[in-house]
Design a protein around this nucleic acid. Structure first.
Lengths: 215, 215
DNA sequence: ACCTGAACACCGTTCAAGT
DNA sequence: ACCTGAACACCGTTCAAGT
């Protein structure tokens, strides 16, 4: 295909490759991101990528760096609870903007320095609030797990087709064996949006942590 | 290779295929499970599988059914809090035994009737405890998200090599920029095992939910 | 009826060759 | 120095053929 003109040398760089790869991963998922497809999108030969990126694992690291680089600052105002709540919501916003971060984190631990600033910030707030080091680590894990878990396992990110499929599957269950699920199909229960449900859970977690300090 | 003897007809069935596939998925991950590799393990031609399973998606459904079928019964004794706590721990045990369930759920919603009994049970306990339908759905999502999120994102399931890599990466961070993470490298903070941390978080969530009923 | 090899369109990565 | 086509060992699935 003569359509795609070869770019002059030096046009692709680690950063540019990561940007385009991040876009593909966010839009179509990590599985749909291939070295060959990425090269085609960049207008270069497949092997050109290997001049700037060591391989698929390194490409995923580059994607994380690219996605994390545009994060908003964490919240450092207010009491410890406001800081945790605000900072968790900042990260949630980042995960909504770049859903591939969740998929990437599920595949392997993310140890990029910039990505670790979330851990550092939350741990620092918890320590300053009065939690001992061990409990701070446990509380951080709770908040981290909930934030990433919600993004990974919440049905909210599903398409309308997915939601229709879910409704159909639930409607086919025998009512007498699944009475609570049947009730949850009522409009009142479905009305709750993804953000409201996320904040409900976050507030229960913060209530539970607050009880540890005041008790 | 004449080593692998052909099995007589009818030896493979949907159940047997699912059992072997589940084993591979649990041990090596969903990505390592291939139709070709599975067929080789079963001692049949690749296309024989397609006589019993519609395709890869159907294979994953069959795996879920197989893994869920051996779950322990949920806890129905005690007050609502004991029932929630006990039932969540039953599911956590199942996820530890079959880690591929977590990977599968992360890829797409699981709508198999037996798998939905977890939702049904927890929703029923929450309704009986006095939560309204909408709040029951939110509280269930919180518990579900935490349980699956912990299995997906907790570093506990990592190998010793992974943990060493994590320690090395953390040790290389500039101490003055990551003081709280540096502190968390101390032995006292690392001593907490995966189960203790899971139950810590679960208890904070239950505290937060209890506060909603008593407040 | 049940099983399966060949073929097609993919994939990541190595290697040797092009400019 | 920088880029890349061919090749290798994979993948899921369709199709037509074997028994």
């Amino acid at each position: 295909m003569g359509k795609v003109k070869r770019q002059p040398r030096g046009t692709v760089s680690r950063e540019r490759i990561a940007q385009v790869a991040l876009r593909i991963a966010d839009e179509e998922g990590i599985d749909a991101l291939s070295m060959r497809g990425l090269a085609k999108r960049l207008g270069v030969g497949t092997m050109t990528i290997y001049g700037h990126i060591e391989g698929r694992d390194d490409l995923l690291d580059a994607i994380v760096d690219c996605a994390v680089s545009e994060r908003e600052p964490f919240v450092s105002d207010g009491d410890w609870r406001q800081q945790l709540r605000g900072s968790v919501l900042v990260v949630r916003k980042g995960l909504l903007r770049h859903p591939s971060l969740v998929e990437l984190r599920a595949r392997r631990p993310v140890l990029r320095p910039e990505a670790l600033r979330f851990s550092e910030h939350l741990l620092g707030v918890l320590r300053a609030a009065g939690f001992e080091p061990t409990e701070s680590a446990q509380a951080f894990r709770l908040l981290f797990t909930y934030t990433f878990g919600y993004a990974a396992f919440s049905p909210a990110e599903a398409t309308e087709a997915d939601r229709a499929e879910a409704r159909a599957a639930l409607a086919e269950l025998p009512r007498d064996e699944y009475p609570a699920l049947a009730e949850s199909l009522q409009p009142a229960s479905e009305a709750m949006g993804g953000e409201a449900a996320f904040e409900y859970g976050l507030d229960r977690i913060l209530d539970g942590l607050a009880a540890r300090l005041s008790g």
